Amino acid sequence: ALNRGDKVRIKRTESYWYGDVGTVASVEKSGILYPVIVRFDRVNYNGFSGSASGVNTNNFAENELELVQAAA
């Protein structure tokens, strides 16, 4: 299972961040479909780089994520 702070690569092909590595911000335990919230260094097309207006978190299912580096 994934944990907060883990570095993960995104495998959801239609995602803006496909192939990117993000950090797990939190994992919901309530049984929702996309329980893993991942935070990225770059914002998506809703904002400009360096601006706070873009979105830099997204929810994924565990099977859409590949663990790159476990949290220390």
Rank of each mutant, 00 (worst) to 15 (best):
residue 44 N to P: 06
residue 33 L to W: 04
residue 17 W to N: 01
residue 12 R to N: 13
residue 25 A to I: 15
residue 4 R to E: 14
residue 25 A to G: 03
residue 10 I to K: 02
residue 56 N to G: 04
residue 46 N to F: 08
residue 20 D to M: 08
residue 56 N to D: 13
residue 55 V to G: 06
residue 14 E to T: 13
residue 50 G to P: 10
residue 16 Y to W: 10
residue 31 G to S: 10
residue 51 S to H: 09
residue 37 I to W: 15
residue 30 S to D: 14
residue 8 V to L: 03
residue 26 S to Q: 10
residue 62 E to G: 06
residue 36 V to F: 11
residue 46 N to K: 05
residue 5 G to R: 03
residue 49 S to R: 04
residue 72 A to D: 13
residue 25 A to E: 15
residue 39 R to C: 14
residue 31 G to R: 03
residue 26 S to P: 03
residue 47 G to H: 10
residue 52 A to F: 06
residue 67 L to F: 06
residue 57 T to A: 09
residue 5 G to D: 02
residue 60 F to E: 01
residue 16 Y to D: 03
residue 44 N to H: 14
residue 3 N to C: 14
residue 46 N to L: 07
residue 64 E to H: 02
residue 16 Y to R: 03
residue 24 V to Y: 00
residue 21 V to I: 14
residue 18 Y to S: 03
residue 57 T to M: 11
residue 13 T to P: 14
residue 15 S to G: 03
residue 7 K to C: 12
residue 21 V to W: 03
residue 55 V to H: 11
residue 28 E to C: 12
residue 2 L to H: 02
residue 18 Y to R: 01
residue 43 V to I: 12
residue 25 A to H: 11
residue 2 L to Y: 13
residue 50 G to E: 10
residue 65 L to K: 01
residue 15 S to I: 04
residue 15 S to K: 03
residue 60 F to P: 01
residue 12 R to F: 03
residue 39 R to N: 07
residue 24 V to M: 01
residue 1 A to K: 13
residue 26 S to F: 14
residue 9 R to F: 05
residue 57 T to W: 14
residue 68 V to D: 01
residue 34 Y to D: 04
residue 38 V to E: 00
residue 58 N to Q: 15
residue 3 N to F: 09
residue 1 A to T: 14
residue 20 D to W: 07
residue 51 S to W: 06
residue 45 Y to M: 15
residue 46 N to Q: 12
residue 46 N to E: 15
residue 67 L to A: 02
residue 24 V to E: 00
residue 53 S to C: 15
residue 67 L to H: 03
residue 33 L to K: 10
residue 3 N to L: 10
residue 64 E to A: 01
residue 15 S to T: 02
residue 68 V to R: 04
residue 15 S to F: 03
residue 28 E to M: 12
residue 60 F to R: 01
residue 4 R to Q: 12
residue 44 N to Y: 15
residue 36 V to G: 01
residue 38 V to N: 00
residue 16 Y to C: 06
residue 52 A to E: 14
residue 67 L to T: 02
residue 54 G to L: 11
residue 33 L to N: 10
residue 25 A to C: 15
residue 57 T to N: 06
residue 20 D to C: 09
residue 10 I to D: 04
residue 40 F to T: 00
residue 70 A to S: 12
residue 9 R to E: 05
residue 49 S to T: 13
residue 5 G to W: 03
residue 69 Q to V: 09
residue 61 A to T: 05
residue 24 V to N: 00
residue 42 R to K: 14
residue 2 L to R: 00
residue 72 A to S: 13
residue 18 Y to Q: 02
residue 18 Y to G: 00
residue 34 Y to E: 05
residue 40 F to N: 00
residue 11 K to M: 14
residue 35 P to L: 10
residue 29 K to C: 11
residue 3 N to E: 09
residue 39 R to A: 10
residue 45 Y to Q: 15
residue 29 K to Q: 13
residue 10 I to Q: 01
residue 3 N to P: 00
residue 19 G to V: 03
residue 16 Y to Q: 06
residue 7 K to F: 07
residue 14 E to A: 12
residue 19 G to Y: 03
residue 4 R to F: 07
residue 47 G to R: 03
residue 15 S to Q: 00
residue 60 F to D: 02
residue 44 N to R: 08
residue 6 D to C: 05
residue 70 A to Q: 11
residue 69 Q to E: 14
residue 68 V to T: 04
residue 26 S to H: 15
residue 39 R to S: 09
residue 41 D to S: 07
residue 30 S to Y: 09
residue 45 Y to N: 15
residue 17 W to T: 00
residue 53 S to D: 14
